[in-house]
């Protein structure tokens, strides 16, 4: 059973793609928890929503390609402009002016895009394990980017991060990927959850997403320079997906604050939910005052 059921559920239509959202609670300010990579969906935030909704209106939505959203197989809906636009659509649909944005991993890019395009709608931003191109990805994963479209013989480890492997062995890839997301011992439940969410979509969808491309370093730096609301960055020291140096660079570029989680991996909101919740609470309280 879920710890809390949504007060409102709905869909918005973004250029023909249905985007599913949920609203929980009703305190100010509103928090908008952004989608991350399409391999997961909004249940990612299950450790946060019930707690935060006791004090705030909390909005989550599924990005295109997973959860209750459509699963288009062309790249356009997955670009950062499209996802940022979907977020605005959701805000319009529920009637909210300004929000605190909370993002995980590549959701950071959409958060920044929203904050610079619509500063009037953004009170502050929390970036958890931001995957932004301000520093290279973590070691072995970085190399897999170069061979992503190659046909590999018996790929091992990060070589499984490969278009062909996805199509043939999607579940095995997901299990590998989340084993890397959760290096913390005894993370079995978190791995099962995330693999389960991965299996709610399919590799063809992820490939469409992959083709949408990401903003480059200079673009992101330009966004950072224009951020004028408070920023909190939360990052694990053992993140094998996006290294701590990215969080440090993002903190520096936005003039934000950094909370380093010593011993944590890429998805601390699932593995260290209490600490993440408390950090979110403190930040939102400060922003709200």
């Amino acid at each position: 059973m879920r710890a809390r059921l949504p007060d409102v559920e709905g869909h918005v239509d973004r250029d023909g793609v249905e985007i599913g959202y949920e609203v929980h609670g009703n305190g100010a300010p509103t928090l908008l928890l952004l989608p991350a990579w399409t391999i997961v969906h909004s249940r990612l935030w299950k450790g946060q929503v019930p707690y935060l909704a006791r004090r705030h209106r909390v909005v989550v939505f599924d990005g295109p390609g997973n959860g209750r959203s459509d699963r288009p197989q062309d790249p356009d809906p997955y670009g950062h402009e499209a996802v940022a636009a979907a977020a605005i659509d959701v805000m319009d649909a529920i009637g909210t002016d300004a929000v605190v944005l909370v993002s995980l991993s590549k959701g950071a890019n959409w958060s920044l895009k929203l904050a610079v395009d619509h500063p009037e709608h953004v009170l502050g931003q929390v970036f958890i394990a931001p995957s932004v191109p301000l520093a290279p990805p973590s070691g072995a994963r970085a190399r897999s980017v170069d061979t992503f479209y190659d046909e590999l013989e018996d790929p091992q480890g990060w070589e499984k991060n490969n278009a062909h492997y996805w199509l043939r062995h999607y579940e095995d890839f997901a299990e590998f990927f989340f084993s890397q997301c959760f290096p913390e011992p005894h993370s079995t439940k978190q791995r099962e959850d995330t693999v389960g969410w991965a299996l709610e979509t399919k590799p063809e969808v992820l490939l469409a997403d992959a083709m949408a491309g990401m903003p480059d370093r200079d673009t992101v730096l330009g966004w950072c320079a224009r951020v004028d609301s408070p920023v909190l960055v939360i990052h694990g020291s053992e993140d094998r997906i996006s290294p701590l140096s990215r969080a440090e660079a993002l903190t520096e570029a936005t003039g934000g604050e950094l909370v380093v989680l010593q011993g944590s991996g890429h998805i601390p909101l699932a593995r260290d939910p209490v600490k993440v919740n408390l950090a979110l609470r403190d930040f939102v309280d400060r922003v709200a005052s």
Partner: peptide
């Protein structure tokens, strides 16, 4: 507030 703060996982 501190610009950088470190929290260490309990089991770490």
């Amino acid at each position: 507030a501190m610009r950088r703060h470190t929290w260490t996982r309990g089991m770490h």
